[in-house]
């Protein structure tokens, strides 16, 4: 069936089988392979994207359900090659090792900040229970999200988020 998806600010018209999952539409059709699949059962969160600014697990929904919604993937965060403050915080705090869960962690981290603008470490630990990482033991991910939240708050009071934060 034909469907329209708006991904990272670009409108796409796709012709896909009805049963196509959103994650497969992103990866296979749009070749946005930064969104990963780790479990197929909505447990690991590697496939987390934003739908109208809210984190969803893209292996859990059909592509057609995202029609008419704004989808943001990990590829949509950096602006003109400058990392988003949350991405930069993961780099500085060594919040990634193999990198496979990282896009989902960053997208989930941003959703935590949306709901808790200055989250403490305990809040982040509790809120991150829908994302699995097997490499880091989570500690540096938690630090990175806290630091990313601080950087975003600082940027919001001054310049636009992300500005001047890139490498």
């Amino acid at each position: 069936m034909e469907m329209r998806l708006e991904v990272n600010g670009t409108a796409h018209r796709l012709d896909l089988p009805e049963r196509t999952l959103l994650v497969h539409a992103l990866r296979d059709q749009l070749r946005l392979t930064g969104t990963h699949i780790g479990c197929d059962t909505s447990q690991c969160g590697a496939c987390t994207v934003h739908l109208d600014g809210v984190a969803v697990k893209s292996c859990t929904m059909l592509a057609v359900q995202a029609e008419g919604r704004r989808i943001t993937t990990i590829e949509g965060l950096a602006k003109d090659g400058a990392l988003h403050p949350m991405q930069l915080a993961f780099h500085i705090h060594h919040g990634l090792q193999c990198g496979y869960c990282t896009p989902g962690m960053i997208m989930a981290g941003l959703d935590i900040v949306r709901r808790h603008p200055r989250p403490d470490l305990g809040t982040i630990r509790a809120e991150l229970e829908g994302n699995l990482c097997r490499c880091t033991g989570y500690h540096n991910i938690i630090r990175a999200i806290a630091a990313g939240a601080e950087a975003m708050a600082a940027a919001a009071t001054g310049e636009r988020p992300g500005e001047g934060q890139g490498q």
Binding site: R27, L32, T33, G34, T35, H36, I37, T73, I74, E75, L77, A78, L83, Q87, L88, F90, H91, I92, H94, L96, G99, Y100, T102, P103, I106, Q167
Partner: peptide, 19 residues
Amino acid sequence: VPRLEDRRFLMGAGNYVDD
């Protein structure tokens, strides 16, 4: 030292077999 390989992972530009 922060890692040199991080950037592609952070930007969703990692290159795994299934990609």
